[in-house]
């Protein structure tokens, strides 16, 4: 099962490396990882998506992360109590089926941010499932490249 873990960590040299090192040293898989400072720049927030692990492994990951000295708080976010989205850029072949392309873009709320004779560049903000459908629909038109930011997640039901 996929888990999204939100980690509040001191914004100091080596903090990110401590977290990633923990994953590699203990053999856990990272699906995606994003880190940036919070409102208070003393802290940073990391959103880590992990896959292929059972509950006991997730429990270990949460506890091991919490054990790191610069880590302040660790949350295992579930789909019920949180929203998870990512930013995705997709380069699509524009030589054919532009009408179809624009229809799909509109249906998904996707912005066209660049147009060139050969390529349309799209910008999507979506979750994993939406991205999957989007990619499936665009694939026949011709996807040239895709760049993903990795998921960010926020707890929306607690306050």
């Amino acid at each position: 099962m996929q888990h999204t873990i939100s980690v509040l960590v001191k914004n100091e040299a080596g903090a990110l490396s401590r977290m990633t090192n923990l994953f590699s040293a203990r053999g856990y898989n990272i699906e995606s990882l994003t880190v940036s400072t919070t409102l208070d720049t003393k802290y940073a927030r990391a959103t880590i998506v992990v896959t292929h692990c059972d509950d006991s492994v997730i429990e270990q990951i949460l506890k091991q992360l919490h054990k790191l000295i610069p880590v302040i708080k660790v949350c295992d976010l579930t789909p019920e109590n949180s929203t998870t989205l990512e930013l995705v850029f997709i380069k699509v072949d524009s030589k054919n089926e532009v009408g179809e392309l624009l229809k799909i873009a509109e249906a998904f709320g996707v912005k066209v941010i660049d147009v060139s004779p050969k390529t349309y560049t799209l910008q999507a903000v979506c979750n994993e499932k939406q991205l999957k459908s989007l990619v499936e629909l665009l694939r026949p038109i011709g996807i040239k490249d895709i760049v993903r930011s990795g998921a960010v997640s926020i707890n929306v039901k607690s306050e």
């Binding site: 040299a13 080596g14 490396s17 401590r18 090192n21 923990l22 040293a25 000295i69």
Partner: peptide
């Protein structure tokens, strides 16, 4: 050495 000892120390500082 901070990189090298990261996984075999409780904590480290530079």
């Amino acid at each position: 050495i901070v990189g090298i000892t990261r996984s075999c120390s409780k904590h480290n500082y530079l």
